[in-house]
C-alpha cells in the first residue's frame, strides 16, 4: 500500500513546480500551464485525503469534480484573454501586459 505522505509530497512538488512556472515564465500561455499544474496538484491532494480519510462517502470527490469544472472555465477564459491581448498588442509577454499600471 502506498502511504498517504507520498501523495502529499508528490502533490506539494507538483504544486511548487507549477507555482514557479506561474511566477517566473514570461509567456502568458506557459503561465496558464503552470496554473493547470497547480490545480492538478490540488486535485491529487483532495482525492488522496478522500481515499484515506473519507471513503466510501462521496463528498470528497465532489470537490474534485467542481475543481475540474472551474479549471476548464478558467482555461477557456484565460486563453481567450491571452488571444485578445495578443490581437491588440501583438504580445503574450506577461511583462508587457502592464496597462493597468498607474
Amino acid at each position: 500500500m502506498i502511504p498517504l505522505s507520498w501523495y502529499l509530497i508528490f502533490a506539494a512538488c507538483l504544486f511548487c513546480i507549477g507555482l514557479f512556472g506561474v511566477l517566473a515564465r514570461k509567456n502568458a500561455v506557459t503561465i496558464l500551464m503552470g496554473i493547470e499544474l497547480m490545480l492538478n496538484a490540488v486535485n491529487i491532494n483532495l482525492l488522496a485525503f478522500w481515499r484515506y480519510l473519507w471513503a466510501p462517502k462521496a463528498d470528497g470527490q465532489v470537490f474534485v469534480a467542481i475543481v475540474i469544472v472551474a479549471a476548464a472555465a478558467e482555461a477557456a477564459v484565460g486563453l481567450a484573454l491571452i488571444i485578445s491581448a495578443y490581437r491588440r498588442r501583438q504580445t503574450v509577454n506577461a511583462n508587457e501586459m502592464d496597462m493597468l499600471k498607474g
Partner: peptide, 14 residues
Amino acid sequence: ILIIFAAMLTRRSM
C-alpha cells in the same frame, strides 16, 4: 488542445 492552439496562434510574438 486548447493550450496548443493558443500556443500556435501566438507563436510569432516570442
